[in-house]
Simulated scan of single mutants.
Amino acid sequence: MTPFLSAADYFAAKLAYETDPTDLAAERASGTAPLVIDTRSAASWSQGRIPGAVHIPNSELEARIGDFASTTDAAIVVYCWGPGCNGSTRGALILASMGYTNVRELIGGFEYWAREGFATVSDDGRGRRAPDPLTAPLPPTA
Rank of each mutant, 00 (worst) to 15 (best):
P34D: 07
R40E: 03
R64F: 05
P57H: 06
N58F: 01
G99M: 01
A29S: 13
A7I: 15
A8Y: 13
G87A: 08
G31P: 08
T72S: 10
T71E: 12
T22K: 11
N86A: 06
L93C: 13
C85G: 08
E27A: 14
L35Q: 09
D9R: 13
T32V: 13
D23P: 05
L35N: 03
F11G: 13
F68T: 04
P34G: 03
I94D: 06
L95C: 02
I65R: 01
I37W: 00
T71V: 10
L35A: 08
A12W: 11
I76G: 04
D23T: 14
G52H: 11
T72F: 01
N58R: 04
C85E: 09
A63D: 14
V78R: 00
V54S: 01
N86M: 14
S88T: 09
D20E: 14
S41K: 06
D73N: 09
V77T: 07
S30R: 05
C85W: 10
P83I: 15
P21S: 02
S6W: 08
I56K: 00
T89H: 11
S6V: 12
A69M: 07
S46G: 15
G87H: 05
A26W: 08
S88P: 02
A96H: 12
G82V: 07
G66S: 09
P21H: 04
I65E: 00
S6H: 09
I94K: 01
P51H: 07
Q47M: 13
D38F: 02
H55N: 04
L15W: 14
R90E: 10
T39L: 02
N58C: 01
S6M: 12
G66H: 04
A16D: 15
I50A: 07
S46V: 10
A96G: 14
C85M: 13
Y17T: 14
G87V: 09
Y10Q: 12
V78F: 03
D67M: 04
G66L: 03
W81K: 05
L35P: 08
M98F: 03
P57D: 01
W81A: 10
S41F: 07
E60I: 03
A42S: 07
A96S: 12
D67S: 07
I37E: 00
I37K: 00
A8M: 11
V77W: 02
N86T: 13
A92G: 12
V78P: 02
S97C: 11
D67R: 08
